[in-house]
């Protein structure tokens, strides 16, 4: 974030008007992109987390992407798997209407929920409202930041840093409807595996319509709501 840049107030005002119009109602994108993650084949190396922190220049504390190890059971029926979540770029994001300055908006082309942290005043309402813990507080800059699916990479025709860093190729992006239907060719979903919209411990997807697909562990499955 450029701290000493001279501010063009007219440009700022015009940008704000544009943003606020976008935040009144979440855009309905022609094609919604989303992440897909294979809970079982993920080895939990956290390369995705580090690639994300590196790309976004994050200090200790905020983690846009988080690998969550799930372990449990009783011998001999024990289990361990990983759930990996960043921003789910929801159909109707809860963070978006809470933002008083219009810093958060949903892109009309690919449905990415983007944030312009340079407009953030640090009220942290979006952080509280998100059921999936996506907006992250940066205590050094006193603003909230979040995953924007590496929008600059998407616009350059590449995939996000987390996806490119995954050595197991269990994390990928794609049009979320196609991913849910199993129509999108991806290394994150094996032959005969069916991606699901929710796994155990994940907040109810009916709240905001998160664009996320998981290949669930047998112990992580829930009935599709």
């Amino acid at each position: 974030m450029a701290r000493n840049r001279k501010i063009d107030h007219d440009e700022l005002k015009a940008a704000l008007e544009r943003k606020l119009r976008q935040t009144e109602q979440a855009a309905r994108p022609a094609r919604q992109l989303g992440f897909v993650h294979h809970n079982v084949d993920c080895i939990g190396c956290r390369a995705c987390e580090i690639a994300c922190k590196d790309k976004n220049g994050l200090p200790p504390g905020p983690r846009f992407r988080r690998v969550l190890p799930i372990e449990g059971g009783r011998f001999p029926d024990v289990y361990a798997y990983k759930i990996n979540m960043a921003c789910n770029h929801c159909a109707e994001p809860a963070c978006l209407p809470t933002c008083p300055t219009g810093a958060i908006w949903k892109r009309g082309d690919n449905g990415v929920v983007d944030i312009d942290s340079s407009l953030c005043i640090g009220c942290r309402k979006c952080e509280a409202a998100c059921p999936y813990g996506a907006p992250q507080w940066d205590p050094q800059e006193w603003v909230v930041k979040k995953c924007n699916m590496c929008i600059d990479e998407l616009e350059a025709g590449r995939k996000p840093y987390c996806v490119m860093a995954c050595m197991m190729r269990v994390l990928d992006i794609g049009p979320i409807e196609d991913l849910w239907q199993g129509r999108w060719p991806t290394t994150a979903v094996g032959p005969g595996e069916k991606p699901v919209r929710q796994v155990r411990h994940m907040a109810n997807p009916e709240l905001t319509g998160p664009s996320i697909a998981f290949v669930a562990h047998r112990k992580g499955r829930v009935d599709e709501r």
């Binding site: 700022l12 219009g102 340079s118 407009l119 800059e141 603003v143």
Partner: peptide, 14 residues
């Protein structure tokens, strides 16, 4: 002010 210079009291959500 936000990092871009937007005064906190200048804007309000719906």
């Amino acid at each position: 002010k936000s990092p871009a210079g937007l005064p906190a009291q200048a804007r309000r959500a719906a």
